[in-house]
């Protein structure tokens, strides 16, 4: 069984989680052009590599960030948004 570590609830089966897509910064909607906004809404960086992603632990309702390589499917760390990803107190290192 594949496992993922929720920063609030610890390591749980992957079936308890929902993938929320890549973490992305929205452009400023007051200043960006229509074309820039459409690109933000629809386009994705689809090529494989290390990505920062939204994941959701559904039994507890926790949204958090996972850093994952989309080619190897290895998760390097998970943390709550805002928690400094370099601070190992809040960032759960996963050594698998």
């Amino acid at each position: 069984m594949k496992l993922l570590t929720c920063p609030m609830n610890g390591t749980r089966p992957l079936s308890e989680f929902i993938f929320g897509g890549e973490y992305r910064e929205a452009p400023n909607q007051d200043t960006c052009t229509d074309v820039e906004w459409a690109a933000y809404v629809h386009n994705r960086s689809g090529a494989p590599g290390d990505k920062k992603e939204w994941w959701y632990h559904s039994p507890s309702g926790t949204w958090f960030i996972a850093e994952r390589n989309t080619l190897t499917d290895k998760v390097s760390r998970t943390y709550l948004l805002g928690a400094n990803s370099d601070n190992s107190d809040t960032a759960q290192e996963i050594s698998k």
């Binding site: 690109a39 386009n43 994705r44 960086s45 689809g46 090529a47 494989p48 989309t70």
Partner: peptide, 17 residues
């Protein structure tokens, strides 16, 4: 493999694998 090829020409698309 589309996103790997479109990346070569800097073309953005909505495609995810």
């Amino acid at each position: 493999f589309t996103p790997r090829i479109t990346e070569m020409v800097d073309l953005e698309t909505p495609i995810v694998i």
